[in-house]
Design a protein around this nucleic acid. Structure first.
Lengths: 233, 233
DNA sequence: CAGCTTTTTGCAGTTGATGAATTTTTGCGT
DNA sequence: ACGCAAAAATTCATCAACTGCAAAAAGCTG
C-alpha cells in the first residue's frame, strides 16, 4: 500500500546510518521518476520520509512520547533540517499538504456555477478540495487515525481553515458580484468546514473506502434534512 | 467596565513589587464580596489577575512577544504558579472558562424540547452556552479581539469544542431515545460550532452590543436561507 | 573542475511546560 | 493569640519545541 517504508517498523535504533539514503533513493526514484533535478526529488523524498517517520512513531508511542529528534533520526536527517521542512511537529505528523483550489474550479464557482445554487456549489468546491492526488490518500488516512487518538491534532482543520479563510472570503465576495446572496462570509466559511469534517469522518467510518468526496452528498442531504425538519413543522 | 485593573496600562516594569497585593486585595473584596473562604477568593482574584495581565500584555505587544514570565510578573506571582492556574499561555489569554450547560437546559433538550424541532432546540442549547455571567463578557470580548489578531488562538476554540464534544454527543444520543432523528452526531457537533462562531462574530461586528446569544436567530435564519435556496430551485 | 546557489548541519539560546522538593500562606481548633 | 495541618506558591532542575547564525556539504552550471 504505502509507497514508502512498507515494512521494517521498529528495528534497532543503532544501525540507522545508511538506511535513510536507501529509502530516499528509492523514494526519489520511485515517487517522481523523471522530473526536475535531483535536488527537487530529494526534497520531496525527505519530506515524505519525515512524514512517514512521524506518523509511524506517533502511531507506536503516542504524540507526546515522540520527539522531533526521534523523527529526524528515523528519517535520517538532523533535527534542524526537520524545521526546514515543517513549522511544527504536529504539521509533520499530519503531513500538512498545501491543498489549494484549482483554477477552473475557482472560476466556475465565482461565475455562479456549476449549479447556481449556493449550497450545491459549495459542495462542488469542497469536493475538489477533498480529491487530492491518490498518493496522498494514505497519509490523510493515517492522519485521520492519529487524530482520533490525539485530540490535539484536531486543530488541523482549523489551521487549514485559517490559512485559506481569506482566500475563501475572496471567492465568496467575487461570486457575490455576479450572483448575489445574503449569507455572511463567516457562516459560509464554517459551512465549508462542516462539510469537510463531516465528509472526512464519514469516510473514516466507511473504512476509508473510495474517496472522501464520495461522502459529501450524504452530508449535504443531512444538512437539508435538519433544516427542513425545522421549517416544515 | 472591567472590575479589575481599570487603569494603569503600561507603567514601568521595574516597580511592580507591591502593587500585586493591592490589586488582589481589591479584586478579592470587590469581585466576590461575601463568599466562601479567603482562600477561594484569592484564587479567583489571582486567576482574574492573570487573565487580565495576559490580555493586556498581548494586546499591547502581540502573542509571541509576551512570555509567561511577563504575565506572571505583571500579576505578581511566580511563573510556576501560572501553570497551576492554566494549562498553557493561550488558555490564559483566552480566559478559558468552563462554561458548562445548566441542568434544566440539558434536561429539556434531551426530552425533545423546547420546541421539538431539532435545529431550533440546538439554537436554544447554544443560547444557554453563549449567556455566561455578565462579568465574563468583558473577557470574552477581549478574547475575541485578540483572536482576530492572533489566528493561532482560534485553535483553542476548537479544542474547547473538542473537550465538550463527548458531552454533546451524549446529549444527542439521549435525545435520540425519545425523539428520533437521523442526523449524524458529527454533523450536529459541527452545527453547534457553526452557530457559536457565527453568533460570536456577528456580536463582534455589532460592536459587542448586548448579548452574543442575541445574534443566534440571525445565524439560524441565514442557515435556513442557504438551504432553502438549494431546495426550492 | 571551478564557481555559484541551495540546502543541511551543528550550536547556542529562548521559551513553554512539567515534576519534585521546599517554603509560605491560610484555616481552624484550642 | 498560638500552633498545627492542609493548601498553595515558590524555587530549582529538566525536557523538548523551536529559531538564528555561520560553516560545511551538496547540487547545479558553464
Amino acid at each position: 500500500m504505502a509507497p514508502t517504508t512498507p515494512s521494517r517498523a521498529q528495528a534497532a535504533p543503532a544501525d540507522a546510518e545508511q538506511r535513510p539514503d536507501l529509502r530516499e533513493l528509492a523514494a526519489a526514484l520511485e515517487g517522481t521518476p523523471v522530473e526536475q533535478g535531483l535536488r527537487e526529488r530529494k526534497k520531496r523524498a525527505r519530506r515524505a520520509a519525515l512524514i512517514d517517520a512521524a506518523q509511524l512513531l506517533v502511531a507506536e508511542h503516542g504524540l507526546d512520547a515522540v520527539t522531533v529528534e526521534m523523527i529526524s533520526a528515523e528519517a535520517g536527517v538532523s533535527a534542524r533540517t526537520f524545521f526546514n521542512y515543517f513549522e511544527s511537529k504536529d504539521d509533520a505528523v499530519l503531513g500538512a499538504e498545501d491543498t489549494s483550489l484549482s483554477e477552473d474550479v475557482v472560476r466556475t464557482f465565482v461565475e455562479g456555477g456549476p449549479t447556481g445554487r449556493l449550497l450545491s456549489d459549495l459542495q462542488a468546491l469542497v469536493a475538489s478540495l477533498l480529491t487530492p492526488h491518490a498518493e496522498a490518500h494514505d497519509r490523510v488516512r493515517r492522519a485521520m487515525d492519529l487524530m482520533q487518538q490525539e485530540p490535539r491534532l484536531l486543530q488541523r482543520h482549523v489551521i487549514w481553515m485559517d490559512r485559506h479563510k481569506s482566500r475563501l472570503v475572496e471567492l465568496f465576495e467575487a461570486r457575490r458580484a455576479t450572483t448575489p446572496f445574503s449569507t455572511d462570509n463567516e457562516l459560509l466559511t464554517m459551512l465549508v468546514l462542516l462539510l469537510i469534517r463531516t465528509a472526512l469522518v464519514a469516510w473514516e467510518h466507511a473504512g476509508y473506502a473510495g474517496n472522501p468526496a464520495d461522502h459529501l452528498p450524504s452530508a449535504v442531504a443531512q444538512l437539508i434534512d435538519v433544516v427542513a425538519l425545522d421549517v416544515d413543522a
